[in-house]
Design a binder for these strands. Structure first.
Length: 577
RNA sequence: CGGGGCGUAGCGCAGUUUGGUAGCGCGCUUGCUUCGGGAGCAAGAGGUCCGGAGUUCAAAUCUCCGCGCCCCGACCA
């Protein structure tokens, strides 16, 4: 296409609202414009890039036998009420009413709709497995949209759903998706990881997350260089740095001591002279069930942090929150900062494993202004010991013991083994070989298109702009005649442009009456991977071919140009399959 | 939901403290010169100063009430 006729509104200055590199570049390069918080218009370049991502995804889904649907994004409340998620989704869901006052919502995901279709039509195990997918707009009322397309309220997702008669079938469908996701991300030119994850509100057991390592990410993944252990921080386990107990403290009796105004572990540690790791951190938490809520006292080593995700899995409740000050006062008779496990009987106590076998610890005395020393778990209080702590960098790998590292990542895909949650609650049944009714086992598999683009930019950019992988760049090559008014240059540019088109390359001709510098800057900003520069040397039959990411350029003859570009463009993406 | 910041031309900003009727850079239009790394000169166009109410002879500026956007935390398939 010809640049002079396109709408590519590049900006010299960085819009002040943008912080993340991808956000700044998407705006500056004229890919997107904001309409409202977390709601963006995708202009020509973004749409083109997203179409390429979509095509890759579609090809890979079709390859595993998945069938594409187009589903409503406006859903009646009933189907969400049946699955029980109308309530559960809370204010993350956009809700509205029609003229008759009936409740509707904008789709966040399609389990309900897919299951509704399935239960009306699937009758026999012979029709299974089925793999259905769609690539459509999703809505989610994020409490805090941020970083451009990273976390938005309206986005595009490919989500697929599998229906199998048994777990073995599900395992196969899951495997297919796992492999397809690997191929999608490799073909898109991304550096990615797949990690075991916490399945959260989706229900079900097995789940993998596909993430792109990037400092701009919001997810944290725990990695071990020595043995390839990989897990989401929410789920990761580790062996904490060991603290040697002072054996002589074992027999020491409990002793109260006064700690006026010292509430935090750091304050008490400084005041009492023992390190934070010799303290017990006592957290009063409230677990809310549908009908009632109950309190638990969570204990951690003073220098450790609670993983709320692990706690909520442990108590199998979605809503776990810190207790309010009044509740703490009621249950413990003391303020936050002075509570502890000793003498507490009405509240269940769950302690992190790092406290097992310790002695001589400091804990709150359940009396304002006082703490206890020489606290010894088991002797002074009873608790269940569980893994509750959040891994920190340097902890030992649970497999090999080597130090773990934490990596920030962008979550792009998530696959789940749902089980029978939706088929059971929504009445999807088929007959099995024995003529008995059975609820099929389902899986759900999502991947975010904008996140792929955002992640690609975060992983591939420099001061000058984006450096998109050819497979997802809006154009594969840009032709820049230094001076379009020069006849020789213009003719050479037109010729190469025509040949590129004929050979099937996605080519952009910069035919604008701009100065060379402006064209170079723009080409670099929008991130086209290859550039053909046509300047004075055209008189000798030479043009310059340059690579956006390596910044290397070589002179090639007019004849060679198109062939060389084709080779470069085709080299990368499919290599490893 | 807690904490912080911002809102003046398409973009980046000054002007607000101390009230006097809006300015700079980039971009845009026209002309001339220039032409391989965001050109120069000249002449122009472009504004409900986020909105409403109030104080005042006079409000971008002061007061009150809203709205929007960004960042940190909480939250989050």
């Amino acid at each position: 296409m010809r640049w002079s006729q396109l709408f590519i509104p590049t900006l010299r200055d960085i819009p002040s609202e943008a912080e993340a590199a991808s956000h700044q570049l998407l705006l500056r390069a004229g890919y997107i414009r904001q309409l409202a918080a977390g709601i963006y218009s995708y202009l020509f370049l973004a749409k083109r890039s997203l179409l390429k991502i979509e095509r890759i995804i579609r090809e890979e889904m079709d390859l595993i036998g998945a069938q594409e649907f187009h589903l409503p994004e406006l859903h009646p409340a009933e189907v969400w009420q049946e699955s029980g998620r109308w309530k559960m989704m809370g204010s993350d869901m956009f809700r509205l009413q029609d003229r008759w006052g009936r409740d509707l919502c904008l789709g966040m995901t399609e389990e309900e709709v897919m299951t509704t279709i399935a239960r009306g039509e699937l009758r026999s195990y012979k029709q299974l497995p089925q793999l259905w997918y769609q690539i459509q707009t999703k809505f989610r009322d994020e409490p805090r949209p941020k970083s451009g397309l990273m976390r938005v309220r309206r986005f595009t997702m490919k989500d697929s759903y599998s229906f199998d008669i048994d777990e073995k079938g599900l395992e196969a469908s899951y495997r297919k998706h796992y492999n397809a996701y690997c191929r999608i991300l490799s073909r898109s030119g991304l550096d990615y990881l797949s990690v075991e994850a916490h399945s959260g509100a989706m229900g079900g057991k097995k789940s993998h997350e596909f993430v792109l390592p990037s400092d701009a990410g919001e997810d944290v993944v725990v990695t071990c260089d020595a043995c390839d252990y990989l897990a989401n921080l929410e789920k990761a386990e580790s062996t904490p740095q060991v603290i040697e107990n002072d054996a002589s403290t074992k027999a020491n009796p409990l002793e109260e001591f006064e700690t006026p105004g010292q509430k935090t572990i750091a304050e008490v540690a400084a005041f009492g002279g023992l390190p934070a790791s010799s303290h017990i951190k006592s957290l009063a938490m409230v677990i809310s069930e549908e009908t009632e809520s109950k309190a638990v006292l969570v204990l951690l080593r003073g220098d450790h942090q609670l993983s709320e995700a692990k706690l909520s899995v442990l108590v199998s409740s979605e809503t776990v929150r810190p207790a309010h000050p009044e509740e703490i006062q009621k249950w413990f008779g003391a303020e936050v900062g002075y509570i502890g496990p000793v003498g507490i009987s009405q509240v269940e106590i769950i302690a992190d494993k790092a406290l097992e076998g310790r002695s001589g610890l400091v804990a709150g005395a359940n009396k304002n202004g006082w703490h206890l020393r020489n606290v010894t778990p088991e002797r002074d209080f009873k608790a269940h010991f569980e893994d509750l702590r959040e891994v920190v960098a340097g902890d030992g790998c649970p497999h090999c013991g080597q130090p773990l590292a934490l990596k920030k990542c962008i979550e792009v895909g998530h696959i789940f083994q749902l089980g029978r949650k939706y088929s059971e609650s929504m009445g999807l049944r088929v007959l099995d070989e024995d003529g008995k009714e059975r609820a099929p086992v389902m899986g759900s598999y999502g991947i975010g298109l904008e996140r792929i683009l955002t992640g690609a930019i975060e992983q591939n950019h420099d001061e000058a702009g984006m450096m998109l992988p050819a497979a997802i760049s809006p154009f594969e090559v840009v032709i820049v005649p230094v001076n379009f008014k020069n006849d020789d240059q213009r003719e050479a540019a037109e010729m190469i442009y025509e040949r590129c088109l004929k050979s099937g390359l996605d080519v952009l001709l910069d035919d604008r009456p701009e100065r060379a510098g402006v064209k170079f800057k723009d080409a670099e900003l929008i991130g086209i991977p290859y550039r053909v520069t046509i300047g004075k040397k055209v008189a000798e039959g030479l043009v310059e071919l340059s690579d956006r990411s390596t910044r290397l350029s070589t002179d090639v003859t007019l004849e060679e140009a198109v062939v060389s570009i084709r080779e470069k463009v085709q080299a990368a993406p499919l290599a490893d399959f």
